[in-house]
């Protein structure tokens, strides 16, 4: 039997007295694109950050390709190098050029030679259409370009899976499209993706499955044609109406 890319079992996370995740269960299969939607504060970012252990789960288990990453013996650096993460605020390294941003972890973590790291970096900048910006510093790039560099940076580690935490929320509207199209292309190439997003159109077009989270639990999940078009739960319907109105 082939293992799920991610299997989350009864995951709980509290910050002090505030319980943010109240028992999450779901799976992501290899090559699947799962979009997580839900209102602000429902715990979407926290869930995503637990998957690469940027947050320590309070209870429950997370299996990545069968390995329990919440186990004390699990080495988090090894988990993380196989999971790419893209942040809302890009988080490029401002003291490094675009290509250096793509090379630094390859050199340090994967011990790649300078030439090899450079070759991989260039190939990934090509993938996101930014070869001509290779030697620019982040400050000289638009938000959309910075986010594409951030995606290329994660891809340079050749991860098995990518996490996106509202990758387009900090962007001016006219720059959202270029980032979404890179993400779409990645999905078509068969990358396993866990995507927190408010872009319902993207979820409809690209997701294999949509998860609706509310107040720290998974309210509803299923194919986009069901969750996004004909949701079972009244809360989901309400949320979608609010998001669509906001979009107008």
């Amino acid at each position: 039997m082939s293992e799920a890319a991610v299997r989350i079992v009864d995951l709980h996370k509290s910050f002090g007295d505030l319980e943010v995740l109240k028992g999450i269960d779901f799976e992501v299969q290899l090559g699947e694109v799962v979009c997580i939607i839900g209102p602000s504060g429902s715990g979407k970012s926290t869930l995503l950050r637990c998957v690469n252990r940027l947050e320590e789960p309070t209870a429950g288990q997370i299996f990545i390709e069968g390995e329990d990453i919440t186990h004390p013996d699990c080495w988090v650096d090894d988990v993380r190098r196989n999971i790419g993460m893209v942040f809302q605020r890009f988080n490029l390294f401002p003291h490094l050029t675009a290509i250096e941003n793509l090379m630094v972890a390859q050199r340090k973590v994967l011990n790649r030679s300078k030439d090899e790291a450079e070759k991989v970096a260039m190939a990934n900048l090509e993938r996101v259409g930014l070869v001509d910006k290779a030697h620019e510093y982040p400050i000289n790039l638009s938000g959309g370009q910075q986010q594409r560099v951030a995606i290329a940076r994660a891809l340079s580690m050749e991860p098995d899976m990518m996490l996106f935490d509202e990758a387009t929320s900090a962007l001016d509207p006219e720059l959202v499209g270029e980032v979404l199209s890179v993400m779409r292309q990645l999905a078509e190439e068969g990358m396993t993706m866990l995507v927190v997003t408010h872009e319902i159109g993207f979820a409809k077009g690209v997701a294999d499955r949509v998860v609706f989270m509310d107040e720290g639990i998974v309210m509803e999940e299923g194919p986009p044609s069901q969750v996004l078009v004909d949701p079972r739960e009244p809360r989901t319907r309400e949320f979608l109406r609010a998001v669509l109105e906001e979009g107008i």
Binding site: R81, M85, N91, A154
Partner: peptide, 18 residues
Amino acid sequence: VPRGQMEAARSLGMSYGQ
């Protein structure tokens, strides 16, 4: 230095020291 810098570096698999 913004917190996101450490998080981005760690998410690439770098150790705390790296």
